[in-house]
Design a protein around this nucleic acid. Structure first.
Lengths: 254, 254
DNA sequence: CCGGCCGCTTAACGTGTGTTGAAGCAGGGC
DNA sequence: GCCCTGCTTCAACACACGTTAAGCGGCCGG
């Protein structure tokens, strides 16, 4: 084990390719298109707005590296992070007929993104014969379904779970999603967000977020070092969080 | 004004037709199909499961009368209602590649529903020329977008709003959605659910739900009689809830 | 090398919300 | 007419979580 912590550093397009081809087998052409798109990437700092509040036609993008989120701000400054976006996740891929009212997409860490209009066009054009979608179109549909599942998960967490349960549940979901893009090694993965961000995602105050993380560590369930986290006892976490995987991959999530 | 409170009693297909044609203009054929589908309706009692937990391929249905919900149960019995479904709403219309993990759809009141497989087929077959969707297909897409907006609204409510704000926000959303199917008269509409259901939808206990409703009444913001509710001061409610309409209709929601 | 900032941590305290338990109250069935 | 059941309401109490304020350590720019 060399010095680099979670180095790995896969090709830029890896995350998206891995995720989409995990949803549906892609044709060589489609895989090539993904690589081609990812050739032109942009680096953006943390706290960059990728989609502005109520923007009519957001540009399709792929998050290749770093974390982002969809969020909503209340008039008095309260913030709710609606979903966290991880490497390989798509942004603005489904063309909406009307803008989402008052929501924005922003990076949480420095991030690498790329334009993805071609992806959407390719999916719209190809793979629609025989009544059954295939390839890229099917993968994008599946990606949309996953987003809905994450949203439902978020509702249940916020509506009916305690702080302790929420964090456990969230960590398990992140683990499963990162595993789908091969970024988890022995239940250890990069976790580059501050407790303030976590609090805004889980509907808690920063102070209580801190208390809760400490409790999880004291209970030997998680271990945090620098910007990486290790889930020390996944079965216990699953039991605490009442976690039923997202059926994203064949991972033993549930 | 005759005796019947909110009688009205539109044709069974009215709610769905009104909603979908509000999203995109339907062809006469498509409108006729809606009527035809709604000809064969089924009456089901309250607490009927329309889609079971993790069901692979739920039958497409339309809720024509009554209220329902998507919900999720935790192992210890806690329940979270994910979204409330109102007359005109669609159930299981988008064919999923995998079942939603652990969620079910159930009626909250006696309800009238109808099969809608033909709707989905019609949308898949027709209206896809010229790159731009039209008619039924576009309307269904828009309906899906609205569902996502409701989910996001729910996340913000549960994550960052107080009980008082949550109820105000929820009532405004229901009002807007019912208005889209012409079931609101002077801010008065049918509200046939118990406080227990409301509590499960808004992530509160029944007792606190009760406290909060009473406060809203005492403050002159809402008035409840029997199974109907009146929003007495919509601007005040909007301000309290920080409500930004769903852009569903041209209603002065925001 | 020194500030200054940001993120984590801790403490003390206030409060919104949950819990338990029980009493009214209305509607429906018999 | 009665009882039964389900919904609302109320009271007392407990606690999870929010708020405010302060200290502490690392990192970065000057």
């Amino acid at each position: 084990m060399p010095g680099e912590p979670l180095a790995h550093a896969p090709a830029a397009s890896d995350a998206a390719l891995r995720r989409l081809s995990g949803y549906a087998p892609l044709t060589p052409d489609e895989a090539a298109l993904l690589h081609q798109i990812a050739a032109r990437t942009v680096l953006v700092p943390a706290r960059t707005e990728l989609v502005r509040d109520g923007e009519a036609a957001p540009r399709p993008q792929v998050l290749l590296e770093g974390w982002a989120c969809r969020q909503r701000l209340l008039a008095d400054g309260r913030r709710q992070i609606v979903v966290v976006l991880l490497p390989g996740d798509l942004i603005g891929l489904d063309q909406r007929r009307r803008p989402l009212p008052f929501g924005s997409v922003a990076t949480l860490t420095p991030a690498r993104i790329c334009e993805a209009g071609a992806l959407r066009d390719a999916a719209a054009g190809g793979g629609k014969e025989a009544g059954k979608e295939a390839g890229l179109a099917a993968a994008l549909r599946q990606a949309r379904e996953m987003e809905e599942i994450w949203l439902v998960n978020q509702v249940v967490r916020l509506g009916r779970q305690t702080a302790y349960e929420r964090v456990a549940h969230f960590l398990l979901e992140v683990r499963e999603r990162l595993a789908a893009v091969d970024r988890v090694q022995e239940n250890r993965f990069s976790f580059p967000i501050t407790q303030e961000v976590l609090a805004d995602a889980l509907g808690l105050s920063v102070v209580h977020m801190n208390r809760t993380m400490q409790q999880l560590r004291r209970d030997g369930l998680v271990e945090q070092r620098a910007t990486a986290i290790t889930l020390r006892d996944v079965p216990a976490l699953i039991s605490i969080a009442d976690y039923t995987g997202t059926h994203d991959t064949g991972i033993p999530g549930a």
